[in-house]
Design a protein around this nucleic acid. Structure first.
Lengths: 237, 237
DNA sequence: CGATCAATTGACTTAGCTCAAAGCATGTGG
DNA sequence: CCACATGCTTTGAGCTAAGTCAATTGATCG
């Protein structure tokens, strides 16, 4: 329980909000490939303590399978707080990309506790506004960017989130499959693969095995993504 | 100042948070077509008192023009609270689709005030989590849906948000142009037009002039969209 | 070392984009 | 109040990027 206590993301509340948060949080560990079953009767805030996960929609499969998921909404890594709202039509669920430790807070209970601690509440609000912002940025991508631009942007953002590097060279292991990447960017697996090939031929990316990726020129890649330098012609769409 | 006071969305704080919120909020009226210039030095929460607006990214034009905007991230209507974060690369801005009244709160100041009022803070958090959810739902759309499905879904959600109806028949005036619709769904204006034509030929939609739309069978339309009907919370943005 | 499943590559199809030309609303001036 | 002008909308005719189908290669693990 000690480590669980340590995992709770807010430890500095005035009258020790953290202890009370512990009381409403449920610790879970998931093996790679396993899903956290959605609970249609409660909204949740999920804190990711270790590992990486994908947030998917409309997973038709049972709770512990790697089966094809049609829609990857976001990838999440250690330290993230993910909001998983109950949903009437689609069901949203977290699936572990690597072995995963997380703490599940029923949204209402969490907020009831946090209500007495403005600092915590504000922190969660700030995080969720950031998540909203990321989501909008991604939306912009999905709506208006080419396959090449999407993949380039994806790699740049992974360099930042996994590789910890924002320019120059960078090497890291992608925890997600080509299919996951495609599902998150709105591309087919074959298209993802072809884009990797082209970027490899262009000398911007090197790969090793299924997951190791080396970016040789992040700046150039960001340029490809159309994020840094806007092309003179409005890109598309 | 009376009407301004009335416009502030949270009027029931314990020690009258509303008055203090008034102090940090700035009232603005915008004519149709005018944009609210982004402020790169502050994040903002904008409350829409009356009218409708689009949230766009990378508007290259000056503050009061209808010029082509490449990316419409969301449409907003009276009562909505929109978070407009300052942004290094792209700039986000609100543009009035009809005459618009709004209240601008610098994010930090708003939160400083709201920090003493958990009810307000929680309300804002809840709204932003919902906005995040809508954004994700839309992302799913953009990534994986056909033009037909996007337009159908758009019409269904507008029926809910403008027409106030969620099934059966419905008539309303769209405040946004075909171009805006396309920009928000990631489609070209010609594609939007063609889809309207096809839906008209299929007997699902009737149009009158540029903006009046009559949906003759919302359920059927929702079926076309490949989404469940919006039961209570509109899948929209 | 072979079984298995992910990734790649190739050939072909197609939805949606582009370019181009009318067709209509809506608003203005005579 | 009607005619005209402007700009939104619709329609048409190719074109292209990405999807589909299918086969091969390659990685990973028992």
């Amino acid at each position: 329980m000690e480590s669980f206590r340590a995992a709770v993301p807010f430890g500095n509340g005035p009258d020790d909000t953290a202890d009370r948060l512990c009381a409403v949080g449920r610790y879970r560990a998931l093996e790679r490939g396993c899903g956290l079953p959605g609970n249609p009767s409660e909204d949740r805030l999920v804190y990711i303590a270790t590992g990486s996960a994908k947030l998917v929609a409309r997973s038709a499969a049972s709770s512990c399978t790697n089966a094809t998921n049609n829609h990857v909404l976001a990838f999440h890594f250690a330290g993230d707080i993910v909001s998983v709202l109950r949903q009437s039509d689609a069901d949203f669920r977290l699936i572990a990309l690597s072995d995963l430790e997380l703490v599940i807070f029923p949204s209402n209970q969490f907020l009831d506790v946090a209500q007495d601690d403005p600092v915590v509440l504000r922190s969660v609000l700030t995080r969720s506004l950031q998540a909203l912002h990321r989501s909008r940025t991604k939306m912009m991508q999905l709506g208006h960017k080419s396959a090449r631009q999407r993949i380039a942007d994806f790699l740049v953002s992974m360099a930042y989130r996994i590789g910890g590097s924002t320019r120059g060279k960078c090497e890291f292991a992608l925890p997600m499959s080509r299919r996951d990447i495609g599902d998150s960017l709105g591309l087919k697996i074959e298209t993802v693969s072809r884009q990797f090939t082209e970027l490899r031929e262009a000398g911007l990316v090197e790969t090793e095995g299924r997951s190791i990726v080396r970016l040789t020129n992040i700046n150039k890649l960001a340029e490809e993504a159309g994020t840094a330098l806007p092309p003179e012609k409005p890109p598309q769409n």
